[in-house]
């Protein structure tokens, strides 16, 4: 890739040709406020917060490709004044219950306000929205609060460009614009598959998971639901799993998850879940160690061969595990009778 040199606020940085000034700045730990930008999606230039000064002209850095020798200032008086108006307008239009909002610590709006510096008295002079819109709690896994929505459109673009479903679109226009499903029906009545891709990308707390706790540490793992083997990070608090996060580096899912992988982790904490092997002795299941259990299975397998044996594998296993099962069945048990549930 061709490297391009440019200057941001006097610092010379390098960036790959074709990247935007915003991405180049962020990659070099230079923060430029932004709300509608997401690294997975094409830029739209809607929030008007990422403006920068290039030779006295304001340009949106998300749309501005890097150029050799480009001299960018992230905070000229004009850029600052424009950003100030935009953030004040957003804050005046936003509910103020940040303490009870699950998204506060990740909230881009708060980050931007913090970065720009906001004068509470100025916000007070602005007019506040009158009637709050109803919150959509119909989906079992996440809720949608249109009052917190900043209409960045990330959810719309995510559902169309990443998920390929197109459940959401902008509905109405002007200040009456909302994010909505067909007919503005509750999520549960739409074609939404609850994958939560939009929820994780929502920069504010508008689309938010219903259950959310911050884990004390995370463990890298693989989702157990199907053979895709999506990479996940399980968030752990004490001996409980409290969150699931997609692994952006895993080639099989590249940061995406489906409804089961993302929200279906509660079984891990269930009291009825088997945590050790059980061996039936005298009509009763008794806890055993793995060595005991595997010895018993090996011993019993030795009594059978060829057509006396069949293997049924699980889609919950990884591809590698399934490969091993068929190899074992063919090479050791000497039969081709292998099947797979292939559905879930």
């Amino acid at each position: 890739m061709e490297k391009i040199k440019l200057t941001i606020d006097g610092l010379e940085i390098e960036a790959e040709a074709g990247t935007s000034v915003l991405d180049a700045a962020l990659a070099n730990d230079i923060y430029i406020p932004h709300l509608c930008h997401h690294p997975d999606l094409k830029p739209v230039g809607a929030c008007r917060l990422c403006g920068v000064d290039v030779n006295g002209r304001m340009e949106m850095s998300c749309l501005l490709p890097v150029r050799e020798g480009l001299d960018v200032k992230t905070n000229s008086p004009e850029v600052g004044a424009t950003r100030q108006v935009a953030i004040e307008l957003l804050l005046a239009d936003h509910p103020q219950g940040c303490l009870s909002c699950g998204a506060s610590l990740q909230c881009e709006l708060l980050h931007i306000a913090d970065h720009i510096g906001v004068d509470g008295e100025r916000i007070e002079r602005l007019r506040r929205p009158s009637e709050p819109l109803p919150i959509d709690n119909s989906n079992p896994f996440f809720s949608f609060d249109p009052n917190k929505c900043v209409l960045c459109g990330i959810c719309v673009r995510t559902c169309e460009d990443i998920v390929g479903l197109g459940v959401l679109d902008f509905v109405n226009r002007g200040s009456r614009t909302v994010i909505g499903t067909f007919g503005n029906e509750p999520f549960i009545d739409s074609i939404c598959e609850s994958c939560g891709e939009c929820v994780v990308r929502c920069p504010v707390g508008s689309l938010a998971p219903k259950r959310w706790q911050r884990p004390s540490h995370e463990v890298q793992s693989t989702c157990v639901y199907c053979g895709v083997g999506c990479g996940i990070y399980l968030g752990v608090k004490g001996d409980q799993v409290v969150s699931v996060r997609a692994d952006r580096e895993r080639p099989s899912n590249q940061g995406s998850l489906c409804v089961k992988g993302r929200y279906g982790y509660n079984f891990i904490n269930h009291k009825d879940r088997l945590t050790t092997p059980l061996i039936k002795k005298e009509g009763q299941f008794v806890e055993a160690t793995w060595d005991e259990a595997l010895d018993l299975v090996a011993e019993k397998f030795a009594d059978y061969k060829g057509s006396e044996f069949a293997a049924l594998a699980s889609a919950k296993c990884t591809n590698e595990d399934n490969y091993l099962i068929q190899k074992f069945t063919r090479a050791v048990m000497q039969t081709n009778t292998v099947d797979h549930c292939a559905r879930l």
Binding site: E160, L165, N172, G180, F182, G183, I191
Partner: peptide, 13 residues
């Protein structure tokens, strides 16, 4: 062949 939300989004615009 377009998502139904797209039809609604256009119609409400």
């Amino acid at each position: 062949g377009m998502p139904e939300s797209r039809v609604y989004g256009v119609a409400t615009f």
